[in-house]
Design a protein around this nucleic acid. Structure first.
Lengths: 211, 211
DNA sequence: GCACCTATCTGAACGGCGTCAAGATCAATC
DNA sequence: GATTGATCTTGACGCCGTTCAGATAGGTGC
Protein backbone atom coordinates (compact mmCIF):
# COMPACT_ATOMS: atom_id res chain seq x y z
CA UNK A 1 0.00 0.00 0.00
CA UNK A 2 2.96 2.25 -0.39
CA UNK A 3 3.86 2.71 -4.05
CA UNK A 4 2.41 1.40 -7.26
CA UNK A 5 5.11 -0.94 -8.55
CA UNK A 6 5.81 -2.45 -5.17
CA UNK A 7 2.57 -4.39 -5.17
CA UNK A 8 3.80 -6.92 -7.70
CA UNK A 9 7.29 -7.48 -6.30
CA UNK A 10 6.02 -7.64 -2.73
CA UNK A 11 3.11 -10.11 -2.65
CA UNK A 12 3.21 -9.76 1.05
CA UNK A 13 5.55 -10.38 3.96
CA UNK A 14 7.79 -9.84 1.10
CA UNK A 15 7.06 -12.84 -1.02
CA UNK A 16 10.38 -14.23 -2.03
CA UNK A 17 13.00 -11.86 -0.80
CA UNK A 18 15.85 -14.23 -1.50
CA UNK A 19 15.48 -14.00 -5.24
CA UNK A 20 14.74 -10.27 -5.02
CA UNK A 21 18.00 -9.71 -3.12
CA UNK A 22 20.08 -11.59 -5.64
CA UNK A 23 18.52 -9.62 -8.47
CA UNK A 24 19.02 -6.36 -6.61
CA UNK A 25 22.67 -7.27 -6.13
CA UNK A 26 23.05 -7.96 -9.84
CA UNK A 27 21.43 -4.63 -10.70
CA UNK A 28 23.86 -2.77 -8.46
CA UNK A 29 26.76 -4.75 -9.87
CA UNK A 30 25.90 -3.93 -13.48
CA UNK A 31 25.01 -0.34 -12.75
CA UNK A 32 27.59 0.81 -10.21
CA UNK A 33 30.31 -1.79 -10.08
CA UNK A 34 31.66 -4.10 -7.40
CA UNK A 35 32.73 -1.39 -4.95
CA UNK A 36 29.13 -0.21 -4.58
CA UNK A 37 27.92 -3.69 -3.67
CA UNK A 38 27.28 -3.50 0.08
CA UNK A 39 24.74 -5.57 1.93
CA UNK A 40 22.97 -2.41 3.01
CA UNK A 41 22.84 -1.14 -0.55
CA UNK A 42 21.32 -4.41 -1.71
CA UNK A 43 18.70 -4.22 1.01
CA UNK A 44 18.00 -0.62 0.06
CA UNK A 45 17.65 -1.56 -3.60
CA UNK A 46 15.24 -4.34 -2.67
CA UNK A 47 13.28 -2.00 -0.40
CA UNK A 48 13.86 -3.76 2.90
CA UNK A 49 15.73 -3.01 6.12
CA UNK A 50 19.47 -3.71 6.44
CA UNK A 51 18.80 -6.69 8.69
CA UNK A 52 16.27 -8.41 6.44
CA UNK A 53 18.83 -10.30 4.31
CA UNK A 54 20.00 -12.19 7.39
CA UNK A 55 16.83 -14.26 7.31
CA UNK A 56 17.89 -15.66 3.93
CA UNK A 57 21.69 -15.60 4.00
CA UNK A 58 24.11 -16.33 6.82
CA UNK A 59 26.20 -13.31 5.94
CA UNK A 60 27.27 -11.13 3.04
CA UNK A 61 29.49 -13.87 1.66
CA UNK A 62 26.56 -16.21 1.26
CA UNK A 63 24.66 -13.60 -0.72
CA UNK A 64 27.67 -13.16 -2.99
CA UNK A 65 27.83 -16.93 -3.41
CA UNK A 66 24.27 -16.87 -4.67
CA UNK A 67 25.11 -14.06 -7.09
CA UNK A 68 28.18 -15.94 -8.27
CA UNK A 69 26.07 -19.05 -8.78
CA UNK A 70 23.90 -17.16 -11.26
CA UNK A 71 27.04 -15.97 -12.99
CA UNK A 72 28.46 -19.46 -13.39
CA UNK A 73 25.16 -20.62 -14.81
CA UNK A 74 25.24 -17.83 -17.37
CA UNK A 75 28.86 -18.51 -18.26
CA UNK A 76 28.13 -22.20 -18.62
CA UNK A 77 25.32 -21.42 -21.04
CA UNK A 78 27.60 -19.16 -23.07
CA UNK A 79 30.27 -21.82 -23.35
CA UNK A 80 27.80 -24.56 -24.20
CA UNK A 81 26.32 -22.37 -26.91
CA UNK A 82 29.76 -21.68 -28.35
CA UNK A 83 30.55 -25.38 -28.35
CA UNK A 84 27.39 -26.14 -30.29
CA UNK A 85 27.98 -23.36 -32.76
CA UNK A 86 31.55 -24.42 -33.51
CA UNK A 87 31.87 -25.50 -37.13
CA UNK A 88 34.49 -28.23 -36.73
CA UNK A 89 36.50 -30.06 -34.13
CA UNK A 90 39.55 -27.92 -34.76
CA UNK A 91 37.87 -24.67 -33.81
CA UNK A 92 36.02 -26.04 -30.79
CA UNK A 93 38.45 -24.95 -28.10
CA UNK A 94 39.02 -21.53 -29.61
CA UNK A 95 35.30 -20.82 -29.81
CA UNK A 96 34.78 -21.86 -26.20
CA UNK A 97 37.74 -19.75 -25.12
CA UNK A 98 36.50 -16.71 -26.99
CA UNK A 99 33.04 -17.08 -25.49
CA UNK A 100 34.59 -17.32 -22.02
CA UNK A 101 36.52 -14.10 -22.38
CA UNK A 102 33.64 -12.32 -24.08
CA UNK A 103 31.39 -13.20 -21.15
CA UNK A 104 33.88 -11.64 -18.78
CA UNK A 105 33.88 -8.51 -20.91
CA UNK A 106 30.11 -8.29 -21.03
CA UNK A 107 29.73 -8.80 -17.26
CA UNK A 108 33.01 -7.59 -15.74
CA UNK A 109 31.64 -6.88 -12.27
CA UNK A 110 29.81 -10.20 -12.08
CA UNK A 111 32.90 -12.03 -13.33
CA UNK A 112 34.96 -10.44 -10.60
CA UNK A 113 32.51 -11.50 -7.92
CA UNK A 114 32.54 -15.05 -9.29
CA UNK A 115 36.23 -15.36 -8.46
CA UNK A 116 36.54 -12.98 -5.51
CA UNK A 117 34.06 -14.74 -3.29
CA UNK A 118 35.75 -18.08 -3.91
CA UNK A 119 39.21 -16.66 -3.24
CA UNK A 120 37.98 -15.46 0.14
CA UNK A 121 37.21 -19.04 1.02
CA UNK A 122 40.34 -20.54 -0.57
CA UNK A 123 38.04 -22.78 -2.55
CA UNK A 124 37.80 -23.49 -6.22
CA UNK A 125 35.05 -21.39 -7.80
CA UNK A 126 31.84 -23.18 -8.56
CA UNK A 127 32.40 -23.46 -12.30
CA UNK A 128 35.77 -25.13 -11.80
CA UNK A 129 34.65 -27.89 -9.51
CA UNK A 130 34.43 -31.47 -10.67
CA UNK A 131 30.62 -31.63 -10.72
CA UNK A 132 28.83 -33.30 -13.60
CA UNK A 133 28.02 -30.22 -15.66
CA UNK A 134 30.44 -27.64 -14.40
CA UNK A 135 32.02 -25.42 -16.99
CA UNK A 136 35.37 -27.01 -16.18
CA UNK A 137 34.05 -30.47 -17.05
CA UNK A 138 32.65 -29.11 -20.28
CA UNK A 139 36.13 -28.02 -21.29
CA UNK A 140 37.78 -31.22 -20.14
CA UNK A 141 35.32 -33.42 -22.02
CA UNK A 142 35.81 -31.29 -25.09
CA UNK A 143 39.53 -31.83 -24.81
CA UNK A 144 39.04 -35.53 -24.41
CA UNK A 145 37.00 -35.66 -27.59
CA UNK A 146 39.37 -33.48 -29.58
CA UNK A 147 42.49 -35.28 -28.39
CA UNK A 148 41.34 -38.80 -29.05
CA UNK A 149 41.99 -41.91 -26.96
CA UNK A 150 45.77 -41.90 -27.27
CA UNK A 151 46.43 -38.88 -25.08
CA UNK A 152 46.95 -39.81 -21.39
CA UNK A 153 44.35 -38.64 -18.90
CA UNK A 154 46.85 -36.57 -16.97
CA UNK A 155 47.65 -34.59 -20.10
CA UNK A 156 43.97 -33.93 -20.67
CA UNK A 157 43.74 -32.61 -17.13
CA UNK A 158 46.85 -30.45 -17.44
CA UNK A 159 45.73 -29.08 -20.79
CA UNK A 160 42.35 -28.19 -19.31
CA UNK A 161 43.96 -26.38 -16.42
CA UNK A 162 46.35 -24.62 -18.78
CA UNK A 163 43.50 -23.52 -21.02
CA UNK A 164 41.49 -22.31 -18.06
CA UNK A 165 44.45 -20.35 -16.70
CA UNK A 166 45.04 -18.74 -20.06
CA UNK A 167 41.40 -17.83 -20.56
CA UNK A 168 41.08 -16.45 -17.03
CA UNK A 169 44.28 -14.47 -17.39
CA UNK A 170 43.16 -13.03 -20.69
CA UNK A 171 39.78 -12.20 -19.17
CA UNK A 172 41.46 -10.15 -16.47
CA UNK A 173 44.03 -8.55 -18.75
CA UNK A 174 41.58 -7.52 -21.43
CA UNK A 175 39.72 -5.36 -18.91
CA UNK A 176 42.74 -3.06 -18.81
CA UNK A 177 42.18 -0.44 -21.48
CA UNK A 178 45.74 -0.23 -22.62
CA UNK A 179 45.96 -2.61 -25.52
CA UNK A 180 43.79 -0.32 -27.62
CA UNK A 181 46.44 0.33 -30.24
CA UNK A 182 47.23 -3.34 -30.61
CA UNK A 183 43.55 -4.24 -30.82
CA UNK A 184 42.92 -1.62 -33.50
CA UNK A 185 45.88 -2.84 -35.51
CA UNK A 186 44.57 -6.38 -35.43
CA UNK A 187 41.05 -5.43 -36.45
CA UNK A 188 39.08 -5.21 -33.22
CA UNK A 189 38.51 -6.80 -29.86
CA UNK A 190 37.71 -10.31 -31.05
CA UNK A 191 40.68 -10.42 -33.41
CA UNK A 192 42.85 -9.53 -30.44
CA UNK A 193 41.40 -12.37 -28.38
CA UNK A 194 41.90 -14.86 -31.20
CA UNK A 195 45.40 -13.54 -31.72
CA UNK A 196 46.39 -14.13 -28.12
CA UNK A 197 44.69 -17.52 -27.93
CA UNK A 198 46.42 -18.49 -31.16
CA UNK A 199 49.73 -18.35 -29.35
CA UNK A 200 48.56 -20.78 -26.71
CA UNK A 201 49.27 -24.36 -27.70
CA UNK A 202 46.17 -26.08 -26.43
CA UNK A 203 43.88 -23.94 -28.51
CA UNK A 204 45.30 -25.62 -31.58
CA UNK A 205 44.21 -29.28 -31.73
CA UNK A 206 47.30 -30.51 -33.52
CA UNK A 207 49.34 -29.32 -30.59
CA UNK A 208 47.31 -30.62 -27.73
CA UNK A 209 49.69 -33.33 -26.66
CA UNK A 210 52.97 -32.30 -25.20
CA UNK A 211 55.07 -35.19 -26.53
CA UNK B 1 59.21 -8.79 18.49
CA UNK B 2 57.36 -5.56 17.78
CA UNK B 3 58.08 -3.08 20.55
CA UNK B 4 61.84 -3.40 20.47
CA UNK B 5 62.38 -1.85 17.08
CA UNK B 6 60.14 1.15 17.69
CA UNK B 7 62.88 3.30 19.16
CA UNK B 8 64.90 3.04 16.02
CA UNK B 9 62.03 3.57 13.60
CA UNK B 10 60.84 6.67 15.46
CA UNK B 11 63.82 9.05 15.57
CA UNK B 12 61.36 11.71 16.38
CA UNK B 13 58.28 13.42 14.97
CA UNK B 14 58.15 10.01 13.62
CA UNK B 15 61.15 10.12 11.35
CA UNK B 16 60.06 8.56 8.16
CA UNK B 17 56.55 7.38 8.63
CA UNK B 18 55.95 6.76 4.96
CA UNK B 19 58.34 3.85 4.83
CA UNK B 20 57.19 2.64 8.23
CA UNK B 21 53.59 2.53 7.02
CA UNK B 22 54.43 0.53 3.92
CA UNK B 23 56.36 -1.95 6.00
CA UNK B 24 53.56 -2.17 8.55
CA UNK B 25 51.15 -2.88 5.72
CA UNK B 26 53.38 -5.65 4.42
CA UNK B 27 53.62 -7.18 7.89
CA UNK B 28 49.84 -7.24 8.22
CA UNK B 29 49.51 -8.64 4.73
CA UNK B 30 51.89 -11.50 5.37
CA UNK B 31 50.59 -12.21 8.83
CA UNK B 32 46.83 -11.77 8.58
CA UNK B 33 45.95 -11.61 4.91
CA UNK B 34 44.39 -8.99 2.65
CA UNK B 35 41.07 -8.72 4.50
CA UNK B 36 42.84 -7.49 7.65
CA UNK B 37 44.58 -4.70 5.77
CA UNK B 38 42.71 -1.56 6.82
CA UNK B 39 44.21 1.89 6.97
CA UNK B 40 43.49 2.03 10.67
CA UNK B 41 45.18 -1.32 11.26
CA UNK B 42 48.26 -0.11 9.41
CA UNK B 43 48.38 3.04 11.52
CA UNK B 44 47.92 0.94 14.65
CA UNK B 45 50.74 -1.39 13.62
CA UNK B 46 52.99 1.59 12.98
CA UNK B 47 52.03 3.13 16.33
CA UNK B 48 50.40 6.31 15.04
CA UNK B 49 46.90 7.76 14.97
CA UNK B 50 44.42 6.79 12.24
CA UNK B 51 44.78 10.20 10.63
CA UNK B 52 48.56 10.20 10.44
CA UNK B 53 48.84 8.32 7.12
CA UNK B 54 46.98 11.13 5.36
CA UNK B 55 50.06 13.31 5.59
CA UNK B 56 51.92 10.84 3.38
CA UNK B 57 49.23 9.31 1.18
CA UNK B 58 46.18 10.88 -0.44
CA UNK B 59 44.03 7.95 0.57
CA UNK B 60 44.12 4.22 1.23
CA UNK B 61 44.53 3.49 -2.46
CA UNK B 62 47.76 5.43 -2.61
CA UNK B 63 49.17 3.46 0.30
CA UNK B 64 48.27 0.23 -1.48
CA UNK B 65 49.95 1.55 -4.60
CA UNK B 66 53.14 1.99 -2.61
CA UNK B 67 52.85 -1.54 -1.24
CA UNK B 68 52.21 -2.88 -4.74
CA UNK B 69 55.27 -1.01 -5.98
CA UNK B 70 57.44 -2.93 -3.56
CA UNK B 71 55.81 -6.13 -4.74
CA UNK B 72 56.54 -5.43 -8.39
CA UNK B 73 60.14 -4.67 -7.54
CA UNK B 74 60.46 -7.99 -5.74
CA UNK B 75 58.78 -9.88 -8.57
CA UNK B 76 61.01 -8.18 -11.11
CA UNK B 77 64.07 -9.28 -9.16
CA UNK B 78 62.79 -12.86 -9.01
CA UNK B 79 62.23 -12.97 -12.74
CA UNK B 80 65.56 -11.37 -13.56
CA UNK B 81 67.27 -13.89 -11.32
CA UNK B 82 65.49 -16.76 -13.05
CA UNK B 83 66.48 -15.41 -16.43
CA UNK B 84 70.13 -15.28 -15.42
CA UNK B 85 70.06 -18.74 -13.92
CA UNK B 86 68.49 -20.33 -17.01
CA UNK B 87 70.86 -22.83 -18.57
CA UNK B 88 69.95 -22.36 -22.22
CA UNK B 89 67.77 -20.29 -24.51
CA UNK B 90 65.17 -23.03 -24.74
CA UNK B 91 64.41 -23.06 -21.04
CA UNK B 92 64.46 -19.30 -20.57
CA UNK B 93 60.74 -18.68 -20.78
CA UNK B 94 59.85 -21.65 -18.65
CA UNK B 95 62.22 -20.59 -15.88
CA UNK B 96 60.86 -17.06 -15.89
CA UNK B 97 57.30 -18.39 -15.83
CA UNK B 98 58.02 -20.73 -12.95
CA UNK B 99 59.64 -17.96 -10.96
CA UNK B 100 56.61 -15.75 -11.60
CA UNK B 101 54.15 -18.28 -10.25
CA UNK B 102 56.40 -19.24 -7.36
CA UNK B 103 56.57 -15.61 -6.31
CA UNK B 104 52.78 -15.47 -6.24
CA UNK B 105 52.77 -18.57 -4.06
CA UNK B 106 55.34 -17.20 -1.64
CA UNK B 107 53.56 -13.85 -1.32
CA UNK B 108 49.90 -14.55 -2.08
CA UNK B 109 48.48 -11.56 -0.22
CA UNK B 110 50.99 -9.16 -1.72
CA UNK B 111 50.37 -10.59 -5.19
CA UNK B 112 46.67 -10.00 -4.79
CA UNK B 113 47.20 -6.38 -3.76
CA UNK B 114 49.46 -5.88 -6.78
CA UNK B 115 46.55 -6.61 -9.12
CA UNK B 116 43.60 -5.47 -7.01
CA UNK B 117 44.72 -1.91 -6.59
CA UNK B 118 45.32 -1.56 -10.33
CA UNK B 119 41.95 -3.10 -11.20
CA UNK B 120 40.28 -0.48 -9.04
CA UNK B 121 41.77 2.17 -11.28
CA UNK B 122 41.18 0.28 -14.55
CA UNK B 123 44.87 0.69 -15.20
CA UNK B 124 47.55 -1.80 -16.15
CA UNK B 125 49.49 -2.85 -13.07
CA UNK B 126 52.89 -1.32 -12.68
CA UNK B 127 54.85 -4.39 -13.77
CA UNK B 128 52.94 -4.61 -17.02
CA UNK B 129 53.50 -1.09 -18.21
CA UNK B 130 55.80 -0.30 -21.06
CA UNK B 131 58.52 1.29 -18.92
CA UNK B 132 62.16 0.51 -19.60
CA UNK B 133 62.67 -2.16 -16.98
CA UNK B 134 59.19 -3.33 -16.20
CA UNK B 135 58.72 -7.05 -15.76
CA UNK B 136 56.59 -7.06 -18.89
CA UNK B 137 59.44 -5.65 -20.96
CA UNK B 138 61.78 -8.23 -19.50
CA UNK B 139 59.53 -10.96 -20.87
CA UNK B 140 59.04 -9.28 -24.23
CA UNK B 141 62.75 -8.75 -24.75
CA UNK B 142 63.37 -12.34 -23.80
CA UNK B 143 60.85 -13.41 -26.40
CA UNK B 144 62.49 -11.21 -28.99
CA UNK B 145 65.83 -12.81 -28.32
CA UNK B 146 64.50 -16.35 -28.30
CA UNK B 147 62.37 -15.89 -31.39
CA UNK B 148 65.02 -14.32 -33.57
CA UNK B 149 64.62 -11.54 -36.12
CA UNK B 150 62.19 -13.34 -38.43
CA UNK B 151 59.19 -13.26 -36.11
CA UNK B 152 57.03 -10.15 -36.65
CA UNK B 153 56.85 -7.65 -33.81
CA UNK B 154 53.12 -8.07 -33.40
CA UNK B 155 53.61 -11.77 -32.77
CA UNK B 156 56.22 -11.03 -30.13
CA UNK B 157 53.73 -8.75 -28.46
CA UNK B 158 50.88 -11.24 -28.64
CA UNK B 159 53.08 -14.05 -27.37
CA UNK B 160 54.16 -11.88 -24.44
CA UNK B 161 50.56 -11.09 -23.55
CA UNK B 162 49.60 -14.73 -23.92
CA UNK B 163 52.44 -15.84 -21.67
CA UNK B 164 51.55 -13.21 -19.10
CA UNK B 165 47.89 -14.24 -19.12
CA UNK B 166 48.83 -17.88 -18.68
CA UNK B 167 51.24 -17.17 -15.84
CA UNK B 168 48.80 -14.89 -14.06
CA UNK B 169 45.99 -17.39 -14.48
CA UNK B 170 48.15 -20.17 -13.14
CA UNK B 171 49.22 -17.96 -10.25
CA UNK B 172 45.60 -17.45 -9.24
CA UNK B 173 44.54 -21.04 -9.83
CA UNK B 174 47.40 -22.60 -7.94
CA UNK B 175 46.28 -20.81 -4.76
CA UNK B 176 43.20 -23.02 -4.73
CA UNK B 177 44.09 -26.06 -2.71
CA UNK B 178 42.24 -28.55 -4.83
CA UNK B 179 44.80 -29.86 -7.25
CA UNK B 180 46.61 -31.67 -4.45
CA UNK B 181 46.07 -35.14 -5.91
CA UNK B 182 47.26 -34.09 -9.32
CA UNK B 183 50.30 -32.34 -7.85
CA UNK B 184 51.25 -35.36 -5.80
CA UNK B 185 50.91 -37.63 -8.83
CA UNK B 186 53.22 -35.40 -10.82
CA UNK B 187 55.86 -35.20 -8.10
CA UNK B 188 55.21 -31.94 -6.31
CA UNK B 189 54.26 -28.32 -6.73
CA UNK B 190 56.96 -27.33 -9.19
CA UNK B 191 56.36 -30.37 -11.39
CA UNK B 192 52.74 -29.33 -11.57
CA UNK B 193 53.67 -25.82 -12.65
CA UNK B 194 56.03 -27.12 -15.31
CA UNK B 195 53.39 -29.58 -16.44
CA UNK B 196 50.82 -26.88 -16.99
CA UNK B 197 53.28 -24.49 -18.61
CA UNK B 198 54.42 -27.33 -20.86
CA UNK B 199 51.00 -27.33 -22.46
CA UNK B 200 51.25 -23.67 -23.32
CA UNK B 201 52.83 -23.11 -26.72
CA UNK B 202 54.90 -20.05 -26.06
CA UNK B 203 56.83 -21.72 -23.29
CA UNK B 204 58.38 -23.96 -25.90
CA UNK B 205 60.72 -21.98 -28.15
CA UNK B 206 60.17 -24.11 -31.23
CA UNK B 207 56.52 -23.18 -31.08
CA UNK B 208 56.80 -19.49 -30.50
CA UNK B 209 55.55 -18.41 -33.88
CA UNK B 210 51.92 -19.03 -34.61
CA UNK B 211 51.88 -20.44 -38.14
C1' DG C 1 68.46 33.28 21.25
C1' DC C 2 64.07 34.18 19.38
C1' DA C 3 59.97 34.32 16.51
C1' DC C 4 57.79 32.70 12.78
C1' DC C 5 56.62 29.06 9.37
C1' DT C 6 55.66 24.71 7.83
C1' DA C 7 55.34 19.84 8.04
C1' DT C 8 53.77 16.44 10.93
C1' DC C 9 50.83 14.23 14.18
C1' DT C 10 46.62 13.84 17.49
C1' DG C 11 41.70 13.86 18.94
C1' DA C 12 37.25 14.04 17.91
C1' DA C 13 33.84 13.67 14.79
C1' DC C 14 30.92 12.15 10.45
C1' DG C 15 28.59 8.82 7.71
C1' DG C 16 28.73 4.13 6.00
C1' DC C 17 29.61 -0.58 6.71
C1' DG C 18 28.52 -5.78 8.56
C1' DT C 19 26.19 -7.85 12.14
C1' DC C 20 23.18 -8.91 16.03
C1' DA C 21 19.42 -8.95 19.65
C1' DA C 22 14.74 -7.63 20.81
C1' DG C 23 10.43 -6.73 19.38
C1' DA C 24 6.63 -6.21 15.76
C1' DT C 25 3.94 -8.41 12.06
C1' DC C 26 1.40 -11.76 9.83
C1' DA C 27 0.38 -16.72 7.23
C1' DA C 28 -0.57 -21.01 8.62
C1' DT C 29 -2.16 -24.41 11.71
C1' DC C 30 -4.82 -26.59 15.28
C1' DG D 1 -9.59 -17.68 17.47
C1' DA D 2 -5.35 -18.52 19.96
C1' DT D 3 -0.68 -20.26 19.09
C1' DT D 4 3.26 -20.79 16.50
C1' DG D 5 7.03 -19.84 13.63
C1' DA D 6 8.86 -17.43 9.89
C1' DT D 7 9.74 -12.93 8.35
C1' DC D 8 10.82 -8.13 8.75
C1' DT D 9 12.03 -3.61 11.49
C1' DT D 10 14.27 -0.91 14.96
C1' DG D 11 18.10 0.29 17.27
C1' DA D 12 22.48 -0.60 18.69
C1' DC D 13 27.61 -2.08 18.53
C1' DG D 14 32.25 -1.75 16.81
C1' DC D 15 34.95 -1.08 12.75
C1' DC D 16 35.93 1.35 8.63
C1' DG D 17 37.74 5.60 5.53
C1' DT D 18 38.04 10.33 5.78
C1' DT D 19 38.12 15.21 7.41
C1' DC D 20 39.25 19.12 10.26
C1' DA D 21 40.67 21.96 14.10
C1' DG D 22 44.31 22.16 17.11
C1' DA D 23 48.82 20.55 19.30
C1' DT D 24 53.80 19.82 18.46
C1' DA D 25 58.24 20.52 16.99
C1' DG D 26 62.17 20.97 13.21
C1' DG D 27 63.86 24.49 10.11
C1' DT D 28 64.75 29.28 8.74
C1' DG D 29 65.64 34.15 9.03
C1' DC D 30 66.60 37.65 12.28
Amino acid sequence: MREAAVVETRPYHHGDLRRALVEAARRILEGEGPTALSLRAVAREAGVSPAAPYHHFKDKGELLDAVAHVGWDMLGDSMTGAKQRAADLGSLMTEIGVSYVQFSQQHPALYRVMYDCSRDKDELPEGMQDNEDSAYCLVRETFRKVAGPDVPIVDIELATIAAWCAAHGLAEMSTFKQFEGLKAGLGGEEAFLRGVLGHLGMFQPSRLSRD
